[in-house]
């Protein structure tokens, strides 16, 4: 549990961080440190330098800009959990933040850190997909905005390029008739998702007008359940519809499996939790 030697830099601005990343190609950004530091202690990760961005003021805070909620990447889970603005305009995120780790983890861990790390079992990615969020990424050549659908590219892999920083997460403000929910089975030890499904539905006259469903935990990275979205759109989200729609949503061959939960079992859980998440979302719409 002892890391290799590394240098440590605490920065105050995004620009400072970017220039340090350019000077040290194998440097890593340090946010809350709840994934990176354990990996370094186990010597699974061995960066020569850490660039600590946890105190960069411009990366903090939650604010509304028109129909978009802008969340700074260094906003902690507990700030999201407690945000009155989010509870009103995007209740899914406080709900998800509330079940991450324990209070100590939530006080240090950040939304941006979690998304950039892209752990296949992390909770947030499913909700980013369900919400239709997008991520602002800044590098030396300026900035760009990437949709959640294109952000998670693989196991621990994202659209963030080398020398770039995820600075903001943009989430649409909840509109009339929208309900959202996250349902998960968490591993009893790590409290990471074995399977987690986030659903966002827009209901009108008892019929689903739009559905977005994101799944995490079971596969190599978070992904949309597009087939399911199509199957329930235009229908009432009653038990019979959901039960019929949530069958064999994913193939076990595409999933992860381990001693605690096999791929077959996870595939079954995706069906169960997709159904529960949609039902819960519809109930809140």
């Amino acid at each position: 549990m002892y890391t290799n030697q590394f240098s440590y830099h605490r920065v105050n601005t995004v620009q400072e961080a970017i220039s340090l990343l350019q000077k040290n190609p194998d440097a890593r950004l340090l946010a809350g440190g709840h994934s990176l530091i354990p990996a370094m202690k186990l010597r699974l990760s061995d960066p020569s330098a850490l660039v600590d961005i946890s105190r960069v003021a411009e990366l903090k805070g939650i604010r509304q800009r028109g129909n978009t909620l802008v969340i700074g990447a260094m906003t902690t889970h507990s700030e999201i959990e407690d945000s009155a603005l989010l509870k009103q305009l995007c209740p899914l995120l406080p709900e998800v933040a509330h079940i991450i780790g324990d209070p100590a983890v939530r006080n240090r861990g950040t939304l941006g850190g979690s998304l950039a790390h892209a752990d296949p079992a992390a909770d947030y990615p499913a909700s980013m997909l369900a919400l239709g969020a997008s991520m602002k990424i800044v590098g030396s050549n300026g900035d760009r905005v990437v949709d959640a659908d294109n952000f998670f590219t693989g196991m621990f892999a994202t659209a963030i390029g080398s020398g770039e920083i995820l600075t903001e997460i943009h989430v649409p403000v909840k509109t009339a008739g929208v309900g959202m929910a996250y349902e998960t089975m968490m591993h009893p030890a790590s409290r990471y998702a074995i399977v987690g499904v986030a659903a966002m539905v827009r209901m009108s006259g008892g019929v689903c007008q739009e559905a977005r469903v994101g799944m995490t935990g079971a596969g190599h990275h978070a992904m949309r359940l597009s087939g399911l979205e199509a199957a329930v759109t235009g229908k009432p989200l009653d038990a019979a519809t959901l039960s019929a729609a949530c069958k064999s949503l994913v193939r076990p061959a595409d999933l992860l499996g381990d001693h605690f939960a096999s791929a077959d079992y996870r595939a079954h859980l995706v069906d169960v939790y997709a159904q529960r998440a949609l039902a819960a979302a519809a109930g809140k719409a």
């Binding site: 186990l42 324990d102 591993h187 009893p188 030890a189 790590s190 990471y192 381990d258 001693h259 605690f260």
Partner: peptide, 28 residues
């Protein structure tokens, strides 16, 4: 309900960290 010190057939301890080995907490 939770704990299992588990070795595979090659004798590797698959529950070798607290990410896999579930000790009980108050919340459980």
């Amino acid at each position: 309900l939770y704990e299992h010190g588990f070795y595979d057939d090659e004798g590797q301890l698959l529950s070798g960290t607290m990410l896999e080995y579930a000790i009980p907490t108050a919340a459980m």
